[in-house]
Design a protein around this nucleic acid. Structure first.
Lengths: 239, 239
DNA sequence: CGAACGTTTGAGATGACTCAAGCGTTGTGG
DNA sequence: CCACAACGCTTGAGTCATCTCAAACGTTCG
């Protein structure tokens, strides 16, 4: 049971860890939990005693706005820790919500603490994982501040394409599963849902990609990446 | 000499560290360097062997845009590590530039590594510092995605006010030193410089604050914070 | 079957941008 | 020491991107 967990979980961003570091880390988790879609996993201000590693599904981080809907500031895909920063900080400044049904490996903070004390190398790797997150956050700030709607939306789609593929969700002929609505995209990009719809139409008519039914179908990846002028270096993917 | 450095540097965000943790950490730095205004401290893709703690002045992190000026995605103030994430990641995805003349304490990565191996508690504190950075990045994504120009600019000014005050730069009758131009603000907020100028005029005419000559003079802090609906929880300031 | 939700499209309003010009300040070289 | 260049600030006028409001449609789910 546990070994199966470990096997399945060494995916996506956790591939930054060597096989041996991974086997050490995976011993800190003794439980896999399933979370239903739209469940709030943790709420701003909560004090957390555990962090979760996404095995399947997608979660979002939301900053509540005083007026209007909470704003989507990050998504986590399989292989990402959804809230590892709660381990050193103990507290979250935002909400974490399951966008789909989610399978997650639970890492109690006390187990992490013990593990880290004995394995500084793994500690460094975990630190690095949160720093890749930070780099992605910077890119979201850049995207929302520097890009116009067409490039902005395309850039987000490129990021999702790259990260989801790296997480092992290979594009099939039917497309890459992206369980977000146009409203979610609008929320992430700081655009109105109507405008997202129009920009998606433009991308479709330009032969770049179609988005719908939970799938992103990329017809011309090179063109899409060119529209976004996408440079994935900020994702710090190995290779 | 060194003790003076330590004394002066235990400011701002480093106050998250206890006095004893701080004395341990400060032993990892044997050099204070002065960097001239507008100097590029490190460039995207560089492999860094040291990280710097700002003692005085301000630095910016810029993501180069394929077209147009590089985009300002973060500023660091006294007490912040400008590039501590280069320690676990070894590489940067963006440029770091001195916005003013900067005094910085140098922390060679090999000294940090040794120190961290012996003091896991300090390691955890350093990790936490980079996570506060990440939280600030999330807020910048939120700001650029969710707020309209008036609130957006006001929110940035509130953040600068809070962080600079916390860094020990108390507001004098003449104002709080904010060594940025309107162009910098525009760059950070994803607005045109002309529009920043108009919004600053609005803030001035509303009696909130005046910005100019390297100073932010806040006339009615409560009003300014209300315009931005500013909630500083994301800064994770103790107390 | 009806309600709720997401998508799609249109029309009009507006916030923010671009272009343009003038002004003040600073720094520099003749 | 002056002159000029460079830069940032300020304001105006017109344009454009994006938003808002509105309505219709399809799908899902209870």
């Amino acid at each position: 049971m546990e070994s199966r967990t470990a096997l399945r979980a060494h995916i996506g961003m956790t591939r930054r860890l060597s096989q041996s570091d991974w086997s050490i880390l995976s011993q800190a988790s003794h439980e896999v939990r399933t979370v239903r879609r739209d469940t709030v996993i943790s709420r701003r201000g909560d004090t957390l005693g555990e962090s979760i590693l996404i095995l399947s599904g997608m979660v979002g981080r939301y900053i509540p706005a005083t007026s209007g809907a909470p704003h989507l500031v990050a998504v986590e895909v399989p292989g990402d820790f959804a809230d590892l920063h709660a381990f050193p900080l103990k507290q979250l400044d935002h909400d974490v919500t399951a966008r789909t049904d989610v399978e997650a490996a639970i890492f109690p903070h006390e187990d992490l603490a013990e593990l880290i004390a004995r394995h500084p190398g793994v500690a460094r790797q975990l630190w690095a994982l949160t720093l890749v997150d930070a780099s992605i956050h910077r890119h979201w700030a850049f995207r929302n501040g520097a890009l116009r709607s067409l490039a902005r939306l395309a850039d987000l789609l490129c990021e999702l394409d790259t990260r989801l593929q790296y997480a092992g969700l290979r594009a099939s002929p039917k497309g890459l599963p992206v369980p977000l609505t146009q409203i979610d995209l609008a929320n992430a990009c700081g655009m109105s849902a109507e405008h997202v719809n129009r920009v998606l139409r433009d991308l479709r008519e330009d032969g770049c990609c179609t988005f719908g039914g939970g799938f992103l179908n990329i017809h011309d990846r090179q063109k899409l990446y060119a529209v976004a002028q996408f440079n994935p270096s900020y994702l710090y993917l190995p290779d």
